[in-house]
Amino acid sequence: MAKKLSRIFLLSKLWAVFLEGPTTGGYPFEPLQLPSGFRGKVVMNAHLCNGCGLCVQDCPASALKIERFDKQHFRIVYNPARCAYCGQCEISCHRGAIHLTNDFNPAVQHIGNLIEVLVERGLPKG
C-alpha cells in the first residue's frame, strides 16, 4: 500500500472549489426548491371524507382528533404542533381525502393558533 503523503495536497482542491463558487444558497432571501412529494402541512378534501376515523386511529403523534356528535355529525381537528409529518394519514385514508402539502413553515405567534378544523359536519351548538 504505497501512500504518498503531501502537506499541500488540499491546495489544488481548495482552488478548484474557490473557482467553482459556493454551493450553498441564501435561503431566507432566495426561494427554496422543494420536491413535489415534500411532506408538509396536512390538508383535507372535506367533501371526500366520510368520517371513518382511520387517519385518527393510525396517527402516531395524535395530531388528528375526531369529535363525534352523532352518526353523521363529526369534526376532525388537526394540530400541526403535534404533527410528526410522517404521512401515515395519507396512506391510511381509503378515499384519498388527505394529502400533505409543501407548506413547511407555519409560524404563528401563539402555538394554539395553529390548530385548525379540517372537516366539519354539523355543529354542536345548534
Binding site: L14, V17, F18, E20, G21, P22, T23, T24, G25, G26
Partner: peptide, 9 residues
Amino acid sequence: IARFQGRVG
C-alpha cells in the same frame, strides 16, 4: 475560508 469550503460566507 467560506469560499474555499464551498460556502457563501
